[in-house]
């Protein structure tokens, strides 16, 4: 075999085009299965809207979220008696516009979700890969540690961690990330165990791939599907937990317009001014629901794919 390039290799642009269209075809197929799930599409629309609103908060929000309108304490929403269209969803006990606070609060919720998922996903993948790939004593030690973390009620553990670290948004996020981590570890490990003895892994080993390459380049990309689904669920969990910690006074501190903190501040007005608690609650509910629907669609789109190839 002489090392003379085949006639075709001249047409490199053609090759690259083929390669790109192969990637495109995969995405198109993914989108087909995702779009079959109507709920997921609705969830995606709501979630995208939320992201847009959060990103454009300074322009979208009618008022400064921290500004106190001294004449308008506990103004009801505009359709109620005494409501005004300048405060569409009313004001809270110190006269801040609830709609504006919710819009700014979306920034915090998304920020919490992204950071928590990024931290726990990265940690979970690395630890899970090591456990599943190494097996033996390393596996046992890691998994027992994860079992210990899992054996605590998650919110209680988060509370304890915040109590140690001190209240605040950053510490709350760290605590939530630690609490969510074991789920990723277990999921990664299970996926790695299923994949590590497949023929293609053995083939890569025969071709001379080392441990690090096998773990991150060969096995990991094939374990991502369940992790992506779990990541979306963790995203909504993080928002919920952060809201819960905020509500308990251990998360974001007032006057931060975080949804859970808003709920907590409004606790005493539950009976007298329903809107102060209802709207943050609905915001949390809708966001979490939308993300979970997206996660559901992702599972539909990613699962059959794995089985087929």
């Amino acid at each position: 075999m002489k090392n003379q390039p085949p006639a075709v290799s001249a047409d490199l642009t053609q090759l690259e085009k083929e390669s790109r269209s192969a990637t495109k075809a995969q995405l198109a197929e993914f989108w087909y299965y995702f779009s079959q799930n109507k709920g997921a599409v609705v969830g995606l629309v709501i979630f995208s809207a939320l992201v847009v609103v959060a990103a454009l908060a300074p322009w979208v929000a009618p008022h400064d979220p921290g500004f106190q309108f001294r004449e308008n304490f506990l103004t009801p929403p505009f359709w109620e008696d005494g409501g005004t269209t300048s405060f569409l969803l009313g004001t809270d006990a110190v006269g801040r516009d609830i709609l504006s606070r919710l819009i700014y609060g979306a920034r915090f919720s998304l920020f919490i979700g992204i950071i928590v998922v990024a931290v726990s996903l990265t940690g979970g993948i690395v630890i899970g890969l090591i456990a599943g790939y190494m097996r033996g004593i390393v596996d046992t030690l890691i998994m027992r540690l994860m079992d210990i973390i899992l054996s605590f009620p998650s919110l209680l553990l988060a509370l304890v961690l915040v109590a140690i670290l001190g209240p605040g948004l950053v510490n709350a996020m760290i605590a939530i990330a630690i609490v969510l981590q074991p789920h990723f570890v277990r999921l990664t490990r299970a996926a790695v165990l299923a994949e590590r003895n497949r023929d293609y892994v053995v083939a890569a080993r025969v071709a001379g791939a080392g441990h690090i390459r096998l773990m991150f380049k060969t096995i990991l990309p094939n374990c991502l599907a369940p992790l992506i689904v779990q990541a979306t669920l963790a995203f909504s969990n993080a928002i919920l937990d952060a809201a819960a910690l905020g509500f308990l006074g251990m998360g974001a501190q007032p006057p931060t317009p975080e949804w859970g903190t808003m709920l907590s501040e409004a606790r005493e007005f539950i009976l007298s001014a329903w809107w102060v608690v209802t709207f943050p609650g609905i915001a949390i509910l809708v966001t979490v629901l939308a993300i979970n629907l997206v996660g559901d669609g992702l599972r539909d789109a990613l699962d059959p794919k794995l089985k087929r190839s």
Binding site: L15, E16, E18, S19, S309
Partner: peptide, 8 residues
Amino acid sequence: PEHYGRYP
């Protein structure tokens, strides 16, 4: 040769 960039 166009199979070069495709998935299994």
